[in-house]
Simulated assay, not measured.
Amino acid sequence: MAGKKRAKKESMEFRNTQLADALQTQDMAAVAFALRHGPTVVPLMRPGQRDNPLDVGEVWTYRDPNTGQVALLLFSDAKHKPETLPPGVALQSPEWLKSFLSTYEEQITTVFFDIAGPHPLQAAPADLIAALEV
C-alpha cells in the first residue's frame, strides 16, 4: 500500500498546473508568469546523482538530423512526456531555466512545451529568457 501512495505522490510532484492551464489557453502572458513562478519538467538523458545535489543530470535535447538544429523540449507535467524520450525527468526552477537558456541560447533554435500535447506551444529561447527576466 505504501508503494502506491509514494508513486502517486511522485507523479504529482512532477508538474506545474499553472503552466498546464496557461498552455491550454495559449496565453503567452500566463505562460511567462507560470515559468517565472513555478517549476518546469525537463527530460534527462542522464539523471543526476542522488548523493550530489549539484548534479542535476544531463538535459536531453533533440537535434534534427537533416538541419542540425537543436530543440529543447519542456513539459508542464511528466505525464505529457512521450514514451519515446529517455525515461528520466527533473523538475527545474525558473532560475535554472533562465540560466540554461542563457548558456545555450546560441545552440538551441527553439523550445517546445508539451510537444505531444495536449496543448503544445513553441517559443524562441530569447523570448523565454525575456519572459523570465520580467
Rank of each mutant, 00 (worst) to 15 (best):
G3F: 09
K4D: 07
K5Q: 13
R6P: 00
E10Y: 15
F14S: 00
R15A: 02
N16T: 06
N16A: 06
Q18S: 14
L19A: 03
Q24T: 11
Q24H: 14
Q24I: 07
Q26I: 00
A29I: 10
V31W: 05
V31C: 12
V41R: 01
L44H: 10
M45Y: 12
R46L: 02
R46Y: 04
P47A: 10
D51K: 05
P53W: 05
V56I: 10
V56L: 14
G57I: 02
E58K: 09
E58H: 08
P65S: 09
N66P: 00
N66K: 15
N66F: 05
V70K: 12
L72T: 06
L73Y: 11
L74T: 03
F75K: 00
F75Q: 01
S76I: 06
H80W: 09
H80K: 12
E83D: 14
L85Y: 08
L85N: 02
P86W: 00
G88I: 01
G88L: 00
V89Q: 06
A90I: 00
Q92M: 15
L97F: 03
S99P: 06
S99C: 03
F100N: 13
L101V: 12
S102D: 01
T103H: 10
Y104M: 08
I108E: 03
T110E: 10
T110V: 10
V111A: 14
F113H: 07
D114C: 05
D114V: 10
I115Q: 11
A116H: 08
P118H: 08
P118T: 10
H119L: 03
L121K: 11
A123I: 03
A126F: 10
D127H: 04
L128G: 06
L128E: 04
A130I: 04
L132I: 14
L132K: 08
